[in-house]
């Protein structure tokens, strides 16, 4: 479904637009959720929560701000992460390291903001294929095995590429 088509449908018939939204993007939502939430039982709860947030926020989507798919991906991802954060507060797993850091002091915030600005500039300098890896790993929180399977690479190959990308980003951030 094209964005223009959905926008027109939303203006004319909200209920139908909501049904189409859920029908068209359910597979994508499950795809993103399955990368973040590994417990199959919790995925259904997460999916339900995502649907609720999408339907509640559907009026806030505007075609000028970005594509429908991007918006759905962002809402799904953020909802899944926040639900995960609530459940896994006390778990000492790799996942804890993948969650955003807790609140910090103003000085630390300023340093972090500067680092994030430099990092965004550095990420934009990467090749598209490397950017894809970064977003898969750190935005969609996909496992290395999943990334390797979908791109037709071995796990070691993906780990090696991620290592080199992180090293490159670190150097560029220092030079920026």
């Amino acid at each position: 479904m094209q964005d223009q088509e959905f926008s027109a449908l939303l203006s004319g018939n909200r209920k139908m637009a909501e049904e189409r939204l859920i029908q068209e993007f359910t597979p994508l939502m499950y795809y993103i959720i399955s990368g973040i939430e590994h417990n199959p039982e919790n995925r259904e709860d997460c999916y339900a929560e995502v649907c609720l947030r999408l339907l509640q926020g559907i009026e806030s989507w505007k075609i000028e701000r970005g594509s429908l798919k991007n918006w759905v991906s962002a809402v799904t991802r953020n909802t899944a992460i926040s639900l995960l954060a609530k459940e896994k507060k006390h778990l000492h797993t790799e996942l804890q390291d993948t969650l955003p850091a807790a609140d910090a002091s103003p000085e630390e915030n300023a340093i972090r903001n500067d680092q994030e600005r430099r990092l965004h500039i550095a990420i934009k300098k990467l090749r598209k294929a490397d950017q894809e890896l970064i977003y898969r790993k750190y935005y969609y929180l996909q496992s290395t095995e999943q990334i390797a399977s979908e791109l037709g690479h071995s796990v070691r190959s993906i780990e090696g590429r991620l290592y080199r990308i992180r090293k490159k980003l670190g150097e560029w951030m220092q030079d920026a």
């Binding site: 992460i81 850091a101 972090r112 680092q115 994030e116 990092l119 970064i134 935005y139 951030m173």
Partner: peptide, 8 residues
Amino acid sequence: QILIDAID
């Protein structure tokens, strides 16, 4: 950690 925070 910077990647996780920034990309978020």
